[in-house]
Simulated scan of single mutants.
Amino acid sequence: MNLANRTYIAACKMIYRPVFRRSARQILKGRLFDLTQPEKGRWLESDINDYLRQTWARSEQLMPMAELDNLPTYGNRQTVFLAVITTAAYQAMISRGVPSEYARTLVADVGWKVYNWMLTAVSIPFRVTSRDPALRIERTLRALMVFPFSAPGAPGYAVKAWSEGGNTYTYWTHCPPQTFVRRVIERHGDHGELDAFFQSWCLYDWPGADVIASDGQHGHYSRPHTLSRDDSVCDMCWHGCARTGEAPEA
């Protein structure tokens, strides 16, 4: 990794370490280690601190596979950095004996807190300046596609985006974080990392759209296909007018 990227990653760690620590403490403290074996106990403060140390140690081991030097923008590098942390968090969780399905849930819950804070911060100016959920969504997505989801094409993000009839469409054909997770599996075997990525990153879009719209309604998002589910595209539709019955794929 070149000096500029090493410096950038060091800055990301300074920013995100306290954010993840706060989220982990809020989400994990008091939760069961195993839903099927409650006698194993619940997460204590000491467990959380040890888990975070393990997560950051694993992230150091995984970071070379992120191939950040090949990514074209700092925004793309940041999202892959966060995918490294997500993957490390899942691996550290199952190494502690947490069942994989439950580990995916816990990691997704911790990550959602972080993602929700980020989305809220980015969308605040557009929520203040417009009462129209469609405009809020469109303007927030435009901002996010400048940073961090800028799309210069593979190996960075590749996307076609447009707005029509009160909806915003984003058709993604390359996703660097998802590519990183697949690279981890190819080199070290499949231990559920892509499923953990899907349950967190890919399923955040439904509640994320509701956060951006900020009209007190659900149903601002749909996506028939998903790259991490072996489809060729993430064909997203961000609905300005909330719809009922829009549920994530299994």
Rank of each mutant, 00 (worst) to 15 (best):
P224F: 04
V146M: 11
L62I: 03
Y221H: 06
Y169A: 04
Y115N: 13
F126G: 01
R183A: 15
C234S: 07
T79L: 02
Y16K: 06
H220G: 04
V114S: 07
T129E: 08
D205F: 09
R96Q: 15
G75T: 06
L32C: 08
I48W: 03
G165N: 12
V107K: 01
S23M: 10
G41A: 13
V181L: 01
T120E: 10
V19M: 15
A88P: 06
M14F: 14
A92N: 05
A108M: 07
D215H: 08
E39C: 03
E101H: 12
T73G: 08
A89D: 09
A242S: 14
A158G: 08
A92R: 02
K160D: 08
L203S: 07
H188D: 14
V184Y: 10
V159I: 07
A57D: 15
R25M: 13
G189M: 14
T140Q: 01
G165H: 10
A250E: 09
E101V: 15
T73Q: 07
A4T: 14
P72L: 11
R243L: 13
C12R: 14
G166D: 02
H218W: 05
S163I: 07
A103M: 06
Q78D: 06
L194M: 14
L28K: 02
E39M: 08
I185W: 05
F147W: 14
E60Q: 14
S123A: 15
Q78C: 08
W206D: 00
V233E: 10
R223G: 02
P99F: 10
S23Y: 06
G166N: 02
Y115I: 14
M236P: 01
C175I: 08
V110H: 03
A196N: 03
K113T: 13
V211L: 12
T179Q: 10
V146T: 13
D210A: 13
